[in-house]
Amino acid sequence: MTQAIETEIVAAKKTSKMMQILKYIKANLTGMIGLVLVVAAIFCAIFAPYIAPYDPGAASLGQRLDMPKWLDETGESQYLLGGDQVGRDLLSRIIYGARISLLVGICGVAISLVLGTVLGLVSGYFGKWLDDLIMRLAEVQLGLPFILLAIVIMSVFGTGIEKIIIILGLTYWVSFARLIRGEILALKEQEYIQAAKAIGGTHFKIIVKHILPNVASSILVLATMCIAEFILLEASLTFLGLGVEPTVPSWGGMLADSRNYMTSAWWISVFPGIAIMLTVLGFNLLGDWLRDRLDPNMKV
């Protein structure tokens, strides 16, 4: 009898736990969708060799411009999302393409985040001539059109993924530096920063314990948004022929290759486009959700 009650209680607890999780997901739906999309993209990038059904580089002219399997009535096509202009499996190439996009996005953001955070901190916290110097530098940087800069650097040093990452990192530090500087200027007016000084904190300690934790959420949000932007920029550069080598599967490159076949084989351009859109959307949704979530005053 008691056992039966106990199992019932356990079951009830289980369902209530499930209910809680479901409730949480329902309340944070957009954030959860973003998270799922981002995790899916990262999963594809890491485990590409295991989940891709075909070798992304293996051309087979017999499968050239094959329709997606589920549309093909003749039953000739083997590829789920169809074949490209040299008969490679589109799905496998999209899965491998996630590697390039995420590598560029994450590494590029890492560089600009570190650079921008350090310069923004110095600029906002210490102020005076350092602030002037760094902000003027930022304005010069903002004046240079990104695509033009990329074209110049690529034509001098040649193309390559590491160059895209470095160019993006060196261009977008301005966004981080300006954001952090602005936040610090506001924070410095807060009495707890003055209090931190009054109770004997060193500059280093004030920055690490009082300023960084209070700007971290903004940095994180900007970083997720920036990853999305970098993925688009990498795709645009590759589309223009300034990105990764054509043999490496990348979403931008696939779009570029497909533009001659847009009318006859729409799937070559549509599916990589959807991949870009979903990933970018995922990062943006995640960023939005994090912004709401990380406000300490909103915590329930």
């Binding site: 807060q190 009495e191 707890y192 209090a195 934790p213 209070n214």
Partner: peptide, 14 residues
């Protein structure tokens, strides 16, 4: 020193 505004004198993340 004791500050005027108790809402801005404490670090919200500590």
């Amino acid at each position: 020193i004791i500050f005027q505004d108790p809402f801005s004198s404490l670090n919200p993340r500590m």
